[in-house]
Write a protein that binds this DNA or RNA. Structure first.
Lengths: 229, 229
DNA sequence: CTGAACACGTGAGTC
DNA sequence: TGACTCACGTGTTCA
C-alpha cells in the first residue's frame, strides 16, 4: 500500500512555487490513513487513499497545464496562478485584436468603398484586349497597407505581348494622392520581373507603362488574371 | 460577524460546476470557527476566519479568471478546468502559428532576394553635388508605414536645375523589394509638382528620373533638404 | 458503486 | 508582523 509515488518534481523550474508543500508531499507520502489500528476496516481508508492520490494527480495535471500555458505566453510578469491566466487572457485578446485588424484590412481591401465616383470595378475592359478580357481583380488595386485613400480610377488598361518573353502593360488612371505609390505597390505585389517602368503625369492623369519580362508560370497566371491574353 | 458576503453567484452559467459546493458555501457561511465557547481567545479564530475568507476570495478570483479565459476561447468542448487551460493553450498555439505564417508571408514578400548589401547609412554623399552636399535625411528613405523592409541603398543622387522652373532629380539605388514603392512614397510625400517620372530597372539597380516643376517656396525647401543646391 | 470534478478549510511558507 | 499564495486532505455531488 501507500506507494503513492508522486514524484513532485516539476515545480515551475523558476521556483517561487517550490515551497514546503513539496516537502510535505514527501513527508506524508504514506497518507494519513489512520493506518493500522483502524477498526472501520480497510475499505474506507482505501477509498480515502484513492481519493487522495486521485486528487493529487488532478492538481498536478492542472498545474502542468497552467505551467504549459505560462510557457507559451510571452512577457509573463507574475508567477501567480491568477496572473498566469490573466496574462494569457490579455495575450489572447491581443492576438485576437491583431487578427481582427488583419481581417478588417483584408475585407477592407476587398470591399473598399462604394463611393460616388467610378472605381475600378466600373472598369470593365477595353477593346485593345486581344480576346475575352477578364474583369480586373480589384483587390490588387487598393492600398495593400490599409491606408484610407480613395481607390484608383482606371481609365485604360492595355496589356500586349512584345515578342516571346516580354509583355507591355500600359495603364492610364486619374491622378490623385498616392496614385503612383499604389500603382507601384500593385506591380510590386505581382512579383513581376520589371524591365522598365515609366510614369508620366500631366494635368489630372497618370500614365504608367511597364515592360515586364515573362519568366515563369506565376507571371502568366498573374497576367491572365488581368487579360486572359 | 459572519457577514462573509460571498455571493456565489457566477457559477459558470452553463452549470456543470454548480454543485453542492455552493450550497455548502452558503451553509457554513458562518465559518467553522468553534464559534463562541472558544477559550483559546477570539484572535486565533479571527485570524482563521480571515484566512478562510481570503482563501475563498482567492479561489473565486482564480475561477473568474478561468471563466474569462474560457469565454474568449472559441470551440471549448469540456468545462473542466484542466480542459479549459488545455484548449486555451491549443488556441494560443493556433493563433501564434497563424501569425507566424502571416509574418513569414510578409517577410517572404518583402525579402525576396535581400542579399546582405550595404544600406543607405553607408551612403555619405557623392561628387556630383554642386556644393557641400548634405547627408540625406534617411528617415525619408524608410518605409513611412512602418513595414519591416530594408532601407533603400542609394548609390547616386543628382539634383540639377533645368531652366527657371524645372528641376531634374536623378536617383540610382539598389533594387530590392518595394524599392519603387518607397521611392514613389518619398516623392509623393514631398508634394512636388511632378511633370514626368521614369523608373528603370536593370540587373540589381533601379534608376529614377523625375522632372519637377518649381512652384512655390516649399519645393525649394524640400530640395535643399536633399542637396543644398 | 466507482471515478471524476469540485469547493472547502487548513497549515505552511514567502515577502 | 500581516497579507499573500500554495498544496494538501476531505466531503460532496454527478455521471
Amino acid at each position: 500500500m501507500e506507494n503513492i509515488s508522486d514524484e513532485y518534481t516539476h515545480c515551475w523550474e523558476t521556483n517561487t512555487f517550490f515551497q514546503a508543500e513539496d516537502l510535505q508531499g514527501y513527508l506524508d507520502e504514506e497518507i494519513p490513513t489512520h493506518d493500522s489500528s483502524s477498526q472501520d476496516g480497510t475499505q474506507s481508508s482505501l477509498m480515502a487513499n484513492r481519493n487522495i492520490v486521485s486528487e493529487r494527480n488532478r492538481r498536478k495535471k492542472l498545474n502542468e497545464r497552467l505551467y504549459a500555458l505560462r510557457s507559451i505566453v510571452p512577457n509573463i510578469t507574475k508567477m501567480h496562478k491568477e496572473s498566469i491566466v490573466e496574462d494569457a487572457i490579455d495575450y489572447i485578446q491581443k492576438l485576437q485584436e491583431e487578427e481582427r485588424k488583419i481581417q478588417a484590412e483584408i475585407s477592407d481591401l476587398e470591399s473598399a468603398e462604394t463611393s460616388s465616383k467610378s472605381t475600378i470595378s466600373e472598369f470593365d475592359h477595353d477593346e485593345t484586349f486581344s480576346s475575352s478580357p477578364k474583369r480586373l481583380t480589384n483587390e490588387s488595386f487598393y492600398d495593400s497597407r490599409g491606408s484610407r485613400s480613395s481607390p484608383i480610377e482606371v481609365l485604360e488598361l492595355r496589356v500586349s505581348s512584345m515578342g516571346e518573353k516580354t509583355v507591355v502593360i500600359s495603364l492610364t488612371c486619374s491622378k490623385r494622392t498616392n496614385t503612383m505609390v499604389k500603382l507601384c505597390e500593385i506591380f510590386e505585389s505581382l512579383n513581376l520581373k520589371i524591365i522598365s517602368a515609366n510614369i508620366a503625369a500631366f494635368s489630372d492623369w497618370v500614365l504608367k507603362t511597364v515592360f515586364v519580362q515573362v519568366i515563369h508560370l506565376s507571371l502568366s497566371l498573374s497576367l491572365t488574371t488581368y487579360s486572359h491574353t
